[in-house]
Computed example of a mutant assay.
Amino acid sequence: MPTVEVADLKDDDFLLDVREDDEWQAGHAARALHIPLSEFVARYGEFTEAVPQDGRVHVICRSGGRSAQVTMYLVQQGVDAVNVDGGMQVWAAVGRPVVDAAGEPGAVL
């Protein structure tokens, strides 16, 4: 499973958040694309329209389990995808910004 540490992410890296809507609304990385795991296959076209053609996809969830599933799926589709180790829990713990649905400071559920 290809993985990356939160500390190694750059501000302009493409981030895909696969947590559910309630988790997203409570707190997420401001620049992330949100497609919940439960809807991912049905919304794959939305993903392909958003992802940069020559860029790596960094997949994140709460702790790394759901994002690992999506990462495996994407790799099977030929996408350069990596799982963000530790997910949003580590993201918040290392001080990366988390915003809620209104763009205010958020929290990771």
Rank of each mutant, 00 (worst) to 15 (best):
Gly55Asp: 12
Glu49Asp: 12
Asp80Gly: 04
Phe40Asn: 01
Gly86Phe: 11
Ala32Ser: 15
Arg31Leu: 05
Pro52Gln: 08
Gly65Cys: 04
Asp54Ser: 11
Ala30Glu: 13
Glu49Met: 12
Val84His: 00
Trp24Gln: 02
Asp85Lys: 15
Gly65Met: 10
Glu49Ile: 05
Ala26Cys: 09
Met88Ser: 13
Gly78Cys: 10
Tyr44Ser: 01
Leu37Glu: 07
Gly64Tyr: 07
Thr71Arg: 04
Gly27Val: 10
Val57Tyr: 02
Ala32His: 05
Ser67Arg: 05
Gly86Asn: 11
Arg62Lys: 14
Ala42Met: 10
Ser38Ile: 13
Gln89Tyr: 14
Phe47Cys: 01
Val84Asp: 00
Arg31Trp: 03
Ile60Thr: 02
Trp24Thr: 05
Met72Ser: 08
Arg56Leu: 04
His28Pro: 00
Gly45Thr: 12
Tyr44Val: 06
His58Ile: 11
Gln25His: 09
Gly64Val: 12
Arg66Trp: 07
Ala50Leu: 11
Thr48His: 02
Val82Asn: 00
Asp80Cys: 05
Gly27Gln: 05
Val51Thr: 13
Val82Arg: 01
Glu39Gly: 04
Pro36His: 04
Cys61Tyr: 01
Asn83Thr: 08
Gly45Ala: 15
Ala26Thr: 11
Ser67Met: 08
Pro36Phe: 04
Gly86Gln: 08
Trp24Pro: 00
Asn83Val: 05
Arg56Ala: 12
Ala29Lys: 01
Arg66Pro: 03
Gln77His: 12
Glu49Gln: 14
His58Asp: 09
His34Asp: 03
Ala29Glu: 01
Ile35Val: 13
Ala26Val: 04
Thr48Tyr: 06
Tyr73Met: 14
Glu46Tyr: 03
Leu33Thr: 14
Arg31Lys: 14
Arg31Cys: 03
Gln25Tyr: 05
Gln69Phe: 06
Ile60Trp: 01
Arg62Met: 10
Leu37Pro: 01
Met72Arg: 09
Ala29Phe: 07
Ala81Gly: 06
Val84Tyr: 00
His34Phe: 10
Ser67Trp: 06
Trp24Lys: 04
Gly78Gln: 08
Arg31Asn: 11
Asn83Met: 07
Arg66Glu: 06
Gly55Asn: 05
Thr71Ile: 12
Gly45Ile: 04
Gln76Ile: 05
Val84Lys: 00
Leu74Thr: 04
Asn83Cys: 07
Phe47Ile: 05
Ser63Glu: 14
Gly64Trp: 06
Asp85Cys: 11
Gly86Ile: 13
Gly45Leu: 09
Ser38Arg: 13
Gln69Asp: 08
Gly86Glu: 10
Val79Gln: 04
Val84Met: 02
Val79Trp: 03
Tyr44Ile: 09
Gln53Asn: 08
Ser38Asp: 14
Val70Tyr: 01
Met88His: 08
Gly64Gln: 05
Glu39Ala: 13
Glu39His: 13
Ala26His: 08
